[in-house]
Structures are given as C-alpha cells and as structure tokens.
C-alpha cells in the first residue's frame, strides 16, 4: 500500500453473524487527506465497514489495510495502535459513561501518553470549539443527544487523529446543530486529515475533496 493511502480494502468478502453476505468483492481506497462519503440503506453494511476498518470484524477473504498495516486477528497490537489513530463518532462509537465529558475528550491523549499540560491545552481548545465548557464536568447520562455528538467529535479531534470515522453524523439534528456539524466536516475535509462519513442519506451539500460512494448489494459503486 502506498504511503499516502490511509485505508485500502481489496476484494473483501464479509459474512454477517447470521450467515448472510454483507460484502462481495468490495474494494475501496482512501488517500491521506481525502474524504469518502459512503451512503447506503439501513442494513447495507455501513457499520460493518467501520468495524472492518477498526478491526472489530475480520474479512473472510480479501485484505484490509489501515495506515499501512494489514488487519489480521493475530495482530492485536497493530489493531490497538491503529485504533488510537482513528477518531470515531456515532454508530459503534459512544461515550464512556463512567467518565466526565472532559475525561472522555482527553481519553485518546491519556492513551497516547501526552503530558498533562498538552492535555489541558487541547481540552480547553476542544471545549471552546464545540461550546462544551459548561458540560466539562458532567457525565454522558446528563447530556443531550446533540451534546453527546459534539463530545464525540471533540474526542475524535483532540489527538489530531489522522483518520476520522463518522457514522450517521447528521441524523436527527436540528437545523442549527446540523449546520454547525457540517461546518466541522468541511473544516476536517480541508485540514488534510482523512475522513470516512457513513450515512443513510446523501449529504445535502457537497464536501470539498470528497469522493462519494454507495453500497449496493455488498459492493461500492
């Protein structure tokens, strides 16, 4: 895989737990700094694609490479290392209920062993950027759905993760929040970081540098 490719799936076949075919010969490539918007009906395999990328599922055949590393069951360390480079929002990703908002946001920095000073600076930046200063000490159970999404976005950005994986980012949002999150998506798209957006609906506005795909019958078109 070339150095500038962040995610590459080649001829992936994946079966669901129930035995149904999720992906048939699925191939996909996301270059560094690129954005891929993948749409598909409910149950088409969007979340399975996210799970393949973070190593939660393993393909029956074909290869999955993330950040230059092939995802294999025996390579638990590689999967762990890769996960730290991925900022996940929505879908399988959620907040940790026993941690406060501030602790949730800084968790990727704790894992990467960042100094406290850096953690504090980045946390303050994220809390300000996502208007979460008031909620910093609260626990996820007291957050609204929108606040929850904002905290996840802050967590996905705090460690400058090179890849952001967003599952249904705009579903059920009010107009104001929708616009705000869409602006965030644009800023990520222009920041040189890579992004995969998984959505049931097509995005109403175009994102810069984005490639658009649709999952149809287990393959990307």
């Amino acid at each position: 895989m070339a150095q500038n490719v962040v995610v590459e799936l080649n001829n992936v076949y994946l079966k669901s737990d129930r035995g149904g075919q999720v992906f048939r010969d699925l191939s996909f490539k996301l270059e560094a700094g690129g954005t891929a918007v993948i749409t598909g009906a409910a149950g088409s395999g969007k979340t399975s694609l996210a799970e393949l990328v973070i190593g939660l599922q393993l393909a029956q055949s074909g290869s999955v490479e993330v950040m230059g590393e092939t995802i294999r069951p025996v390579k638990a360390k590689i999967i762990k290392r890769n996960r730290r480079k991925i900022g996940g929002v929505g879908g399988i990703f959620d907040l940790m209920p026993s941690l406060t908002v501030a602790e949730n946001i800084t968790f990727p920095l704790v894992l990467s062993g960042e100094r406290r000073k850096v953690q504090r600076e980045r946390l303050l930046k994220m809390l300000t950027e996502f208007s979460l200063l008031k909620q910093a000490g609260e626990y996820p159970r007291s957050l609204t759905r929108v606040e929850n999404t904002l905290v996840q976005l802050a967590r996905a950005s705090v460690a400058h993760q090179p890849l952001i994986l967003i599952d249904e980012p705009l579903a059920g949002l009010d107009r104001k929040t929708y616009q705000r999150i869409f602006e965030y998506l644009i800023s990520v798209s222009l920041s040189g970081r890579s992004m995969i957006i998984l959505s049931s609906d097509t995005l109403p506005q175009q994102l810069p540098n984005a490639d658009y795909y649709q999952i149809v019958d287990g393959a990307l078109v």
């Binding site: 996960r83 996940g88 990703f93 959620d94 940790m96």
Partner: peptide, 9 residues
C-alpha cells in the same frame, strides 16, 4: 465503557 475504551485503542 470497557468496550468503548477498547475501540479507542
């Protein structure tokens, strides 16, 4: 929380 922590690496 455990599951989420693992997803984050």
């Amino acid at each position: 929380g455990f599951h989420q922590m693992r997803l984050l690496g």
